[in-house]
Write a protein that binds this DNA or RNA. Structure first.
Lengths: 344, 344
DNA sequence: CTGTTAGCGCATTCAA
DNA sequence: TTGAATGCGCTAACAG
């Protein structure tokens, strides 16, 4: 158990015969230190393998240099891409990340938020769980001027900073594409309408139907989760419809893949009998047959924008409360699963 | 900017008229405190909304209560399951997690290891990147008696603690299954043989061939990455073979899915012409056609075992150096992609 | 059972 | 340009 002692600024100071405060200043690039002493200090620090002690520093500065990231889940390629984008910016900016995911459970989301609050994070990045009803658990941060940026799953009404795509437009585009392929009876499989991403996509779906004189039918809208068992259930509900749809707009690629699989198992041809459009552009879409038409959702870019927004605010470079909504571009990617025309 | 002051144990102490150390003890469940004062203290702490300051505590205790997790990537369901398992145990045991992933790059792995060392983690959980050549970057932890547990991608020769599956057996089972389905010419798509998981699976593959009097042929072994572009390249190499194989054992499900897709695009029937077995039991295997036969790799259990091993060691419950290798059970899951018999 | 005291390593005010 | 002194909040050794 011979744990070598860590090098501190005192060790450096006494070895050179100067004050610890001078060492501290030199190591923090304080301009009041002469070039000569700075050189001596940095060289010795290097030689001894000095590493600052973040706890002492944080205790002293009352800052943690840590960003808390609150996610609903880690199960999609979209969300891991976002995380990679956040991580890139955070690392560049010398911020640490702590990650909490709620498993789509509002109660756990609250626990994570409280936990991060107690850990005294400098800022928060969050995407809401399925069933989060309010933002009360984020109030504590605002009260202490700890900035919070939401992305993807946000409260659009709230005046908090947020980074989103135009879900309405994406929903419209997906549906309009199905209509252009000749679909006249388009079902919609989505999830909790509490979440902007789903309610907005549904609004876009509805508007596209209206614009093309197709009557909106509540019975064609299925709301459920996106896990395998949920998707199977949704597929069964589609198959149980007296009058089958000829197109489905599903707001999640994995779910779409499972639904397509189940339709095929039931003898239905995709896209000939039912055309399908997914959402997210997960890589799963390229390995299923037929390959999935979907909406590209640039997670990595979104992650970078979110983190950049927060970090710039923390560093006082700009006030994120001024430009509080950033909209990231997304677009329809047409593959096989929706191409009815000329197929049949 | 009215940042309210945090409540400290001094606030509680002075309000009650006792010593701060007593408050500290009471809040840490030190048994030497009388029930009466403990009650007073905990109640007031609750009322004032006291939260301990982890920096002061860490500074004082020279412990961080943080575990560094070094991963190769976050892109498979297996690895996110492992992470979920680790997180469960860590949370239960009041440990924080910091996660670094290398993107399969040994250099970044070294950077992450050094970074975690400087952050003074209490312990390390690691799975090696594709091209990691040595464990030198983990030496610094051992020198300071900071425990390191490896999982999945390990150096089997090293005497470090590790949690693995029996990759040799899994490789043997997968191959023997293909042979039992009538395959006589079995290709193998895998990755860097520097990694135990791949070299062991290959050894199992080889042994199964031998045991069934099939000659091992180097030219049937393809070594590449598992990303989409890698998998496409591997599929092309299969298709370019003069004498096509009638079975392929692929050590990654996503890669297997892409390969199957490409074989089908080339007019090859799976499993009739070529049977395929994957590895990991990612959910992608259930949504492709044919559904993928694979090896179940219980990530969540593995994550829990790894974290439990480390935490118990940290808490002094047991010395993990005594039982330094844990083997987790895995098994073959037969679906459609390998079932040649009676198909043709 | 509880109080006193000291110090973890650092950044910062005030003095020089 | 540098030094001395202080305290961030907490835990632990020691004393009572």
């Amino acid at each position: 158990m011979k744990t070598e002692k860590e090098i501190t600024i005192y060790d450096i100071a006494s070895k050179i015969g100067i004050a610890p405060s001078t060492v501290s200043r030199a190591l923090n690039n304080n301009p009041t230190i002469s070039a000569a002493t700075r050189k001596k200090i940095t060289e010795l620090a290097e030689k001894l393998g000095y590493q600052h002690n973040p706890f002492a520093r944080n205790l002293r500065m009352q800052k943690t240099h840590t960003i808390g990231v609150i996610l609903h889940e880690l199960n999609s390629q979209f969300i891991t891409s976002v995380l990679a984008g956040i991580e890139k910016v955070a690392t560049e900016s010398k911020y640490n990340l702590i990650i909490g995911h709620s498993g789509e459970n509002a109660k756990i989301e609250v626990v994570n938020a409280n936990n991060f609050f107690h850990k005294r994070v400098d800022g928060i990045i969050a995407s809401l769980s399925f069933d989060t009803d309010d933002l009360n658990h984020f109030k504590q941060f605002q009260n202490k001027n700890i900035p919070v940026v939401f992305f993807d799953r946000v409260f659009e009404k709230s005046d908090a900073a947020k980074v989103i795509i135009n879900n309405y437009q994406a929903g419209y585009d997906a549906t309009a594409h199905l209509i252009a392929q000749g679909c006249k009876r388009i079902a919609h499989i989505t999830s909790s309408l509490k979440r902007n991403v789903y309610s907005e996509r549904k609004n876009g779906y509805k508007k596209a139907l209206e614009d093309h004189k197709i009557k909106y039918d509540e019975k064609l809208v299925i709301i459920d989760g996106f896990k395998e068992e949920d998707a199977i259930r949704s597929a069964k509900r589609i198959l149980a419809m007296k009058h089958l749809p000829d197109g489905i707009f599903i707001t999640n690629d994995f779910c779409a893949a499972v639904v397509i699989q189940n339709l095929k198992d039931a003898g239905i041809r995709v896209p000939q009998d039912i055309a399908v459009v997914g959402f997210n552009n997960d890589s799963i879409g390229k390995v299923i047959s037929p390959k999935l038409t979907t909406i590209n959702y640039p997670g990595f870019e979104m992650g970078q924008v979110v983190a950049r927004t927060l970090v710039n605010h923390l560093k006082g470079i700009w006030d994120m409360n001024l430009t509080n909504t950033v909209i990231i571009k997304s677009e329809l990617i047409v593959r096989e699963s929706s191409l009815k025309k000329g197929k049949d």
